[in-house]
Structures are given as C-alpha cells and as structure tokens.
Design a protein around this nucleic acid. Structure first.
Length: 367
DNA sequence: AACCCGGGGAC
DNA sequence: GTCCCAGGGTT
C-alpha cells in the first residue's frame, strides 16, 4: 500500500485519479474497446474480443491490428467458432500480421477454452497457463475484460513509469521495480480503465520520441518533466549486432499457371506458413551458387531481389523464376497452387512471388 | 537473462 | 537508414 499524505489519500490514488479523468476525455476509440461512458452505463467487454485483440497487439501496432481484428470477429464471432475452424484457415487469416506462433497458440487456446465450455478464466494465474498468454496478456485480460485489479505492464507502461520515476537502471533489470510501482498505483475502482489509460497515455502523450509533456495529466507527478530529458528513458542496454542472412527463392511456374509451394515447419522462422522453395540461409552467396542449389534442374532466371528487415537482422533474397512442364519434387509438404492469394503466405514470400510474377498474389477482381 | 520470432509506422 | 511497438516461448 502506498504511503498516505495528510489528506488521507495516497499519492498513488491521486495519480490514478488524474489519469482516469484524462482518459474519460482523451481515450482512443478502438474496435475491441468498451468506452468509459459505455462502461459506466453497465456495458462489459467480451472476453473473447479482448483476448483476441491482446494477442494481436503483442509487439504489433494498433493500426496494423484493426483490419485483422475486424476480419477475425466477422469470420469467427466467438471462441467456439474459432475452435471449430481448421488451423490452416486461421493461419491464412493471420498471414501478414507476423509472429506466426501467435496464430498457432491462438488456435490452441481457443480449443482449450471451448472445451471448457467457452468461458475464459477470470484470474491471472489461470489465464497464464493458456498457450500464447504470458505475464502481460493475462494481466490485461484480467483488468480489461473482468475489471479486476492487475498490474498491466507493457512497453507503454514501462516507458511511462521509467519517466515518472527517472529510473536509470537498464530496462532488463528494472522490470521488477517497474511492476512494484504499477501495483501500488492500480486503483481499486476502474482497474480496467486504468490499465487502458496507462497505455493510451504512452501511445499518445508519453511517446518514445518527442513526448507531449505539456499535455500530460501526470506532468506534476513526473520527475523527468522538470529535469527535462524524457527521451532518455527508459534506459536500454545496447543490442548486439546481428549478421545478415542471404538466400534465394525459386518460383516454378507450370504450363497451366500452377506455382510450386511448400509449407514451412511449424517452429522457427515464418513457422507454419507457405513459401516457394528457398535455399538455406547463408552469410554470403552468389548467383551461380544459388542457381546450382535450385530444387530441380530447369532454366532458372534471376527476376529480382528483395530485402526484408526483421527486428534483429535483415535478410536479402534473390528471386529466380523458371517455366516448367512439370514440377513435383519428392516430399509430402510440397504442393501446387493456382490461387496464390488463398495461401497462408507471409509478406516476404508474397514479395518474392510478386518479384517473379507480378500480380500473382493479388486477389481476383469481383465482378 | 538472452535470444528468437514479422511487419510496419514514425522519424 | 534507426527505433520500437498492447510480448511469449525457449534455452
């Protein structure tokens, strides 16, 4: 419990009250959100929609999530519908969103929840045991969907807290300290709105760069506003350099227009997604070496190159194309597809196919 | 604790 | 180009 001042109200209560008052006016409108006005009228969020949105929002921006969220809830309105769907359909719907293990865990979690009668657990510890739900997501669902007190700590909250208290300890070591600050700050009433308010503050006011401190409802509580260097927080340790990965993709086009595809293993890079044949990643590669590594003999021609930037490394991909009469390498995970737009293609493979066959991944025009 | 896993927006 | 985002899982 936070120390009380002479008024009997705790410092934390005061901070939370200011934040909630700001949130009532300046909250973001989001497709999965129950607004504070609706909440005051008795509306309650659907745990399924909160869970779905939280998983999609893991390391993913709100703008990127919106269209995927709408498509998912239209296709699968509740957890039973999602549980009834084939995993491959879920992977296709997730294609382009990234971090594909989330999609597999999403489906596995839906199966478990549906098997238990379709109700999500309403405590952090029970939620934490479900696939794809970690410390953040379990706390977020507890607070937002069930309006129960929980310390919701995401990247936004880490930034807000580290600035409020000028935490100079590197972020990797400061997690515990930050959590304690949040636990003391969570109000007994409206813990769900408090969690969303902290994240809205981080997303719209206490931004990573050029924060709008003059508009911040917590500026009088904040230690860095006075000293004036909010952009230096949170303190992070420098990341180690990562080597580049290079390789080649082979687009084999059969006479009838079919393209040779394969499904990647469920684990690892782009796990569970569809791709054209590729070489293994190497540090250095040249055209002759690449072409010699083609999946079968053919007149391969280099059709272009794409570069793909990941968080921790970059990969570059030479794209080769060949017209073939038949293309059927051994192996059960190979397939031929005429409608590439219907496959669970990650963005990097969509770009590779587009480089060799412009328009191949575009959806057909409705008449 | 460190590392792996995508894609995109802001600058 | 850089940074980092409503993180989880694995080692």
């Amino acid at each position: 419990m936070a120390p009380a001042d002479q008024t009997g109200k705790t410092i934390s209560d005061d901070t939370a009250s200011r934040l909630l008052a700001w949130y009532d006016v300046h909250h973001r409108e989001l497709p999965w959100r129950v607004t504070p006005r609706e909440h005051a009228r008795g509306a309650r969020p659907d745990p399924y929609r909160i869970w779905l949105s939280e998983v999609m929002l893991q390391q993913t921006t709100v703008e990127a999530v919106k269209s995927y969220f709408r498509a998912f809830v239209e296709k699968w309105p509740d957890v039973e519908a999602l549980a009834a769907a084939p995993t491959e359909d879920v992977m296709k719907a997730w294609a382009g969103l990234g971090y594909y293990s989330r999609a597999r865990n999403l489906k596995a979690c839906a199966d478990l929840v549906a098997a238990r009668g379709g109700r999500f657990p309403d405590t952090e510890v029970a939620l934490r045991d479900l696939p794809g739900i970690g410390a953040y997501t379990s706390a977020a669902i507890t607070a937002i969907a069930f309006d129960r007190p929980a310390a919701v700590v995401d990247g936004n909250v880490e930034r807000v807290i580290s600035r409020l208290f000028s935490i100079t300890t590197p972020l990797s070591e400061a997690k515990g300290e930050i959590r304690v600050h949040v636990e003391r700050m969570v109000p007994a009433t409206r813990p769900g709105d408090f969690a969303q308010a902290m994240m809205d503050l981080g997303a719209t006011i206490c931004t990573p760069r050029r924060p709008r401190c003059m508009l911040c409802p917590l500026r009088e509580d904040c230690s860095v506003v006075v000293s004036g260097d909010p952009e230096h927080f949170p303190v992070r340790l420098p990341k180690a350099d990562k080597p580049r990965r290079r390789g080649a993709a082979f687009v084999a086009v059969r006479g009838d227009g079919a393209i040779l595809l394969r499904k990647r293993p469920d684990k690892g890079l782009l796990g569970g997604m569809t791709e054209v044949p590729t070489t293994a990643w190497t540090a250095r590669i040249d055209g002759a070496t690449t072409e010699a590594a083609a999946p079968f003999p053919a007149n391969w021609r280099c059709e272009g190159q794409i570069a793909h930037v990941f968080t921790h490394f970059a990969l570059e991909l030479d794209v080769f194309r060949a017209e073939v009469d038949s293309a059927a390498p051994a192996g059960h995970f190979w397939s031929l597809a005429h409608e590439i737009s219907g496959e669970a293609l990650p963005t990097v493979m969509k770009k590779a196919i587009e480089a060799a066959i412009p328009g191949a991944t575009k959806k057909p025009r409705p008449h």
